[in-house]
């Protein structure tokens, strides 16, 4: 049971990294980014190249100390892989999404769906059609974590859960405590007023999109380092699940995305072993339930959606 809960938390952490970007992009820009799943996949592929390269530069771990060094190097590598998404996300926003803020939402959906298809083929062009795997998963599992309390569980998953919490903490700090974060929230609440007091909404939107892309990419890096590999279709199911998460949490709410992600992750992993036929349906049943009972989601929104 504990193992299933931990699995759920691991799953939820990854889900949060993707859904957080989607929810802040929706909350601030008012755009439901269908291409977000592909940004996540792009992060996974970048991690394959970059982490693969940096992990090759250090020796394979032999003892506990070298394992931790190795783990840190891999973490730095996946941060670097996610950092690739910053300029990519910014450029996508500036070139394609900026011209359509005033348009009907159906056009925004259509455009981001077009971007999804194009990004898929860009990745196919660069990394080829077959899945790729970084293959540092087992080395990281040498780092002792759960063994210390007499329980066996992959250390990597524990680390990802911790990273997920850290990402949430950083985002909450950024939007609550920093000046830039507050400006972003002000822009979300009233675009015209923030323009009037001298905020460049274009810059803010680009920044938000880039941050969202960064965390999606980071989530992708975490997955491709982990037990699964980076493949072309990997973004789709996560994209649909991220919808579920941000709807459960409340569109545009960061806290909601965190709670929603963990809820979806844990409930689906805990239910699956007992009722395998419910595996796919559980998140959506949750979503239907939440929408019918509390249409604005668990936490409502912190930025008004225009």
């Amino acid at each position: 049971m504990l193992e299933h809960v931990l699995n759920g938390l691991y799953y939820g952490s990854i889900l949060f990294m993707i859904a957080s970007g989607m929810t802040i992009i929706f909350g601030v820009l008012g755009i439901l980014n269908l291409a977000h799943g592909e940004l996540y996949a792009l992060g996974a592929f970048c991690a394959f190249s970059i982490v693969g390269f940096v992990a090759g530069q250090v020796a394979a771990p032999t003892g506990p100390a070298t394992t931790i060094v190795f783990g840190l190097v891999v973490l730095a590598g996946s941060l670097a892989a996610a950092a690739v998404l910053l300029p990519v996300g910014g450029a996508l926003e500036a070139a394609f999404i900026r011209p359509i803020y005033d348009r009907d939402e159906v056009y925004q959906l259509l455009l981001t769906y077009g971007l999804l298809l194009v990004l898929t083929d860009v990745m196919k062009f660069v990394w080829g059609p077959s899945p790729v795997d970084v293959g540092v998963f087992s080395a990281i599992n040498e780092i002792p974590t759960t063994e210390l309390v007499g329980f066996s569980y992959p250390s990597y998953n524990v680390l990802v859960i911790l990273i997920g919490v850290a990402v949430f903490a950083w985002l909450a700090w950024f939007f609550d405590r920093t000046k830039t974060g507050r400006i972003v929230r002000a822009t979300a609440i009233n675009r015209e007023m923030s323009t009037a007091i001298g905020v460049s909404t274009d810059r803010m939107f680009t920044l938000v999109f880039a941050i969202g892309a960064f965390f999606a990419g980071f989530g992708g890096a975490m997955v491709s380092i982990g037990p699964s590999s980076a493949s072309l279709g990997m973004g789709l199911s996560w994209l649909v699940l991220s919808f579920v998460v941000i709807v459960i949490g409340g569109l545009g709410s960061l806290k909601g995305a965190f709670v929603g992600a963990l809820l979806v992750g844990v409930s689906s992993r805990v239910v699956t072993p007992y009722y395998p036929q419910l595996e796919l349906a559980v998140p959506f049943l949750l979503m239907v339930l939440v929408l019918l009972v509390r249409p604005e989601g668990l936490y409502g929104t912190w930025g008004e959606i225009q």
Binding site: L32, E105, V240, F243, V244, V247, L251, P276, Q277, L278, E279, L280, A281, F284, L285, M287, V288, L291, P295, I305
Partner: peptide, 25 residues
Amino acid sequence: GYLDIYFALLTLAFNQVLYAFVLQS
């Protein structure tokens, strides 16, 4: 009774529930 994005996402959710149901049946 729902509007805008909520209508879109709710229809999506029902769609996926059906999909999951058929896939597992």
